[in-house]
């Protein structure tokens, strides 16, 4: 996720202090990982340097956190361009799990058990997310669903691999 674009986007509705920006970011997107002040400060200086924001005013008492930032026209254009640009889909071609399974097969370890354990772990996480979804608000539900669908995709892969372990063993073992 591009923090720079996100902060720019948050500024579009009106000028904010750095502290406000962090709070707004955390509220919408920071459920799992809140933003550090340092990140806000360094990001804003980069945006200032690039002319995407300007300092709208400084409160008395100085200090970097007292600055009020406003978005420039170039900034608005930049946000629009970012939103319009499709994200590159994650190809998921490098998978730790796949590596583990092949290694287990090559070393004559029980790959099925490895898959079962992973499956139980996935499901445990899914149960937790489902529980959070049950008690949370719409934002919670959407975020959890995003994760759940990804986990479900992993699980399907686990099922499929479990069903094809014999063939895979043949292929890698020779």
């Amino acid at each position: 996720m591009s923090i720079g674009h996100t902060l720019l986007g948050l500024l579009e509705s009106g000028p904010r202090h750095g502290y406000d920006l962090k709070r707004a970011f955390d509220e919408h997107f920071g459920q799992d990982r809140p933003l550090h002040y340092g990140q806000v400060y360094s990001t804003m200086s980069r945006l200032l340097k690039n002319g995407l924001v300007e300092v709208d005013g400084v409160e008395a008492g100085a200090g970097p956190e007292r600055k009020r930032y406003a978005i420039t026209d170039a900034g608005i254009t930049d946000v629009a361009q970012w939103l319009a640009r499709p994200e590159k889909p994650e190809p998921y071609l490098q998978s730790t799990l796949y590596t583990k399974v092949v290694l287990a097969l090559l070393t004559d370890r029980d790959a099925a058990e490895l898959l079962d354990t992973q499956r139980a772990e996935h499901l445990r996480l899914m149960r937790g997310l489902t529980e959070r979804k049950r008690t949370g608000d719409l934002a919670d539900q959407l975020i959890c669903d995003h994760a759940l669908f990804h986990l479900e995709a992993d699980l399907r892969w686990l099922e499929l691999t479990a069903a094809r372990l014999d063939k895979l063993a043949e292929a890698v073992g020779g």
Binding site: T117, L123, L148
Partner: peptide
């Protein structure tokens, strides 16, 4: 899996044998 996630725990049936999920 997403439906199963509503359960407290899961049991996997494979080849006619029910297994408690590992761990």
């Amino acid at each position: 899996a997403r439906v199963a996630a509503y359960a407290d725990r899961e049991v996997v049936v494979r080849d006619g044998i029910a297994r408690e999920a590992v761990g």
